[in-house]
């Protein structure tokens, strides 16, 4: 464990807490893409297949349970909660995210570390996470103004993977034989997807204006 990875995990946790706060406090999920939340639930379920087979540390196990649990709770809130589901932007959240799932799975079948069940699903989860934010970014552009908590959610979610990139650089120099290119390249793609959001987020923060994404 290094400070970059720990910061990344904490930033990721904060993003989830901000999202839960928004949904719980405002009893609304307007501006949140259910499809992105479903993709993230799938990412965690397919990435942590070793949850019960390999034990690294209490921290590792607890965080995996928190990520899986919170993503399922958020999907439940947006699909089933009698009040929250009314504010879901169903007609705006129309990204065909099944294509993202299929594309990630096909790529995982082609590019993986070892052709084993767990490695294929691990690579799948890495590729899927890199593009899981797309429905959310499309929804933000369509819904025009972004409320603060939603903007902060996307900001922290995008930042966490940037910390992981620093972690991979750190591991490369300290553990030398660190070879996992799959994560590095996917992580770079994932962070790049947020680039324009970060730009508009910074502009809105500098001018102290509401976050406006160009349509």
């Amino acid at each position: 464990m290094n400070i970059f990875r720990f910061s990344g995990d904490m930033t990721h946790l904060i993003s989830i807490l901000v999202l839960l706060l928004k949904i719980y406090a405002t009893k609304s999920c307007s501006g949140i893409s259910l499809k992105t939340q479903e993709l993230y639930a799938l990412v965690f379920l397919t990435r942590y297949l070793n949850l019960f087979t390999e034990f690294f540390s209490v921290y590792n196990t607890v965080m995996k349970l928190v990520f899986i649990g919170s993503s399922l709770v958020i999907v439940w809130y947006m699909r089933m909660h009698r009040v929250v589901k009314l504010s879901y932007d169903k007609e705006l959240d129309t990204f065909r995210h099944y294509f993202l799932v299929v594309a990630s799975f096909v790529l995982a079948l082609l590019v993986h570390e070892k052709f084993t069940f767990q490695e294929i699903f691990w690579a799948f989860s890495i590729y899927l996470e890199a593009i899981a934010i797309l429905p959310q970014l499309v929804l933000l552009q369509r819904s025009g103004n972004v409320d603060n908590l939603t903007g902060q959610y996307v900001f922290f979610l995008g930042s966490y993977r940037a910390f992981y990139i620093l972690n991979w650089i750190y591991r490369y120099f300290t553990e030398n034989h660190f070879a996992r290119l799959i994560s590095c390249i996917s992580g770079l793609v994932q962070t790049a997807l947020y680039a324009d959001f970060f730009y508009y987020y910074f502009i809105s923060w500098k001018n102290n204006k509401k976050l406006q994404l160009p349509a």
Binding site: H12, N50, E54, F56, N60, M63, R171, E175, H177, F178
Partner: peptide, 10 residues
């Protein structure tokens, strides 16, 4: 070590 694969990462 090669074994330090990323499985210990979240």
């Amino acid at each position: 070590t090669e074994g330090a694969s990323l499985k210990d990462e979240l």
